[in-house]
Nucleic acid binder design. Structure first.
Lengths: 347, 347
DNA sequence: ATTATGACCGCAAACGTTTGCGGTAACATT
DNA sequence: AATGTTACCGCAAACGTTTGCGGTCATAAT
């Protein structure tokens, strides 16, 4: 690391304090502040002539209302908060990206908060949201979050809370989630369709509801098929563990064809490393299928077939729901985004 | 997608308006608002007894100052803005993550804005930052941004602007950037060290300064080596293009060993697809080296050797610099984070 | 000539803080 | 007894808006 110190910037601290205000416009034009305020919002009480004068001066000096003053009066700002356990995850990125895009178009800004999967931090963040009187909160809760009363409390304050991805089990809240069961069943069906005999299913943290849902449906669909499939399931809570599991399986199956189902990108990453390490040819030596947002699967050749869980789509759905809530809807809705199978040629 | 409508939430809109304020505490305790305000900030003028009463009631009714009122008075909020061209990029994620982490600890919140690489949107975002009177802005500018006066204007308003990653060429601003030249030279040196004869260098958009810096240094170092290396350089502006280029090269070299230098993750992704498609063994048949944040290289086996550009480290540096600016530093500093080589066994 | 009707505009309070300044009482100092 | 200190506290203005209400004119209706 190296540093270059450059020229002195001088003290041109043109203080914020002298930024354009209604008062300044009013003084300039010899009218009252209220008149200026009303003129700018095209109030019928103000004459066309005055409106014009005001607007001209306003654009000239680049007037813009002070959002803090406005909020103080109206209790109405245009800010959303998105709270996620972690940012190192492509799914959240696309979700955030999706929200940000639409929100900006509607004049909203978005705060990003990261709970680090710590319920304590999550609470602090919620508090911050309450204090800031954000217009709404999108949140994917931590795996440890048990008590959802802080969220309903926020809702009670008039701040809609939309849960997404990691959602509480309660039905008295707005939830937008990935169709875990559906995605798992898509993958399982695909395996059945290909008539594969040996299957290794690798799943994530068994304590997470998402894992349970995927596990349950995957095994169920596979069992319900009218073919005899040999299924082995394992939990792996990290990429490395997944790699180990896969290596062991490769040794076990000694040359026999088998398919691996990876519940998540993380697991897929580990599995693919094992596959490459053992120099197996995907599709020919081993079949791979996973549930993913779609970024990682596209890094390999052949691309990995996956049941898509689109953060982008989820974002659109969530914002939509949020807007309805703000508009006054008071139903608790659970929206499940069913996924579709994206064929990549890996199975 | 399917939807479940659930129970009616009722009209428990416990309006924000009746949230705890200084006034309410004051009335309860029969003291003045100023006394409450001062008691809460441990002002010496207030007696220990009063302080205690106030604090007790305050925590009881969960008082927290209204940030809008505070800002209106003090012109001082605790919010940073991060502006990036796109969010679909691991580097920015780790940068954001890094900033968010430290910022939160210091009581700051962070806004995320995405310019979509559109200078027009970028301007709007800057305006929004000005209106919100954020405490500081971290920005990676669009590739089209020519005029940096809007940024210096912000600085003039007392809002420090820290450029990162994609930075303007002007030296009158605070810049934190990746050591492009250094990273490129690390990669080139590694290639020389391994005594590789044939090299394919794939670079991104030739109009970007980052590309130019990397290209220039890479070729320079390679040429300066005292070995004869056969270097071919190509620009590829997408993952797909990179794949095509690599496929062509593989055909060209027909079995001869060569190394590929990938300027970015995107290019690496394309190249790796070509390698897998042609069933080449990395390290044995072909050497790979790249510049990366480190996520993608770790998805392969062997892991790809890369010169690290750490968004995480950059974030720390940037926040550090920001704090200094807020504290009053008025030097324009350019900080370059030199990268280090992470050996992955791919070359 | 008086009254009603609009059209247009300003007063002032309120939102919830912060803070300079001034005030009061009690106590210590001459 | 007059003065100086000290410890505590409140007044009021200010930050920049929004908005109900009332006011002033000129013009139209009676």
């Amino acid at each position: 690391m190296f540093v270059v110190e450059n020229l002195y910037l001088g003290n041109q601290v043109k203080d914020m304090r002298l930024s354009p205000t209604l008062k300044k416009i009013a003084e300039q034009l010899n009218v009252s502040i209220s008149t200026v305020s009303r003129a700018l919002k095209d109030h019928p009480d103000i004459s066309a002539e005055t409106k014009q004068k005001v607007n001209e001066l306003a654009t000239l000096i680049e007037y813009d209302p002070n959002p803090y003053a406005v909020n103080l009066r109206t209790h109405n700002n245009k800010e959303f908060a998105i709270v996620v356990p972690s940012l190192s995850n492509f799914f959240y990125h696309s979700f955030i990206s999706s929200i940000e895009e639409d929100a900006r178009q509607q004049g909203y800004s978005v705060f990003i908060y990261r709970s680090s999967n710590d319920p304590q931090i999550e609470l602090e963040i919620l508090k911050s949201c309450r204090l800031k009187r954000v217009s709404g909160v999108f949140i994917s809760i931590t795996t440890e979050t048990k008590d959802i009363s802080p969220f309903t409390k926020l809702d009670g304050y008039g701040i809609p809370v939309i849960f997404f991805d990691k959602v509480p089990s309660s039905e008295l809240c707005n939830k937008i989630c990935v169709g875990d069961a559906h995605a798992a069943s898509l993958a399982a069906s695909e395996i059945l369709k290909k008539g594969i005999k040996n299957v290794l299913g690798i799943f994530g943290d068994p304590n997470m509801s998402i894992t349970q849902a995927r596990f349950q449906k995957f095994t169920e669909v596979l069992a319900a098929g009218n073919q005899k499939v040999q299924l082995k399931t394992v939990y792996a809570i990290s990429s490395e563990e997944a790699e180990q599991v896969a290596l062991a399986a490769i040794a076990d199956f000694k040359g026999e064809y088998f398919a691996v189902f990876c519940m998540s990108d993380e697991i897929l990453a580990g599995v693919m490393k094992a596959v490459q390490r053992k120099n197996l040819k995907v599709l020919k030596d081993v079949g791979i299928i996973c549930i993913s947002d779609g970024m990682i699967p596209k890094l390999f050749y052949p691309e990995i077939t996956y049941a898509e869980t689109s953060g982008f789509k989820l974002g659109k759905l969530a914002l939509n729901r949020m807007m309805r809530c703000i508009a006054g809807s008071s139903f608790a809705q659970t929206i499940v985004d069913e996924s579709r199978l994206i064929e990549g040629g890996s199975i």
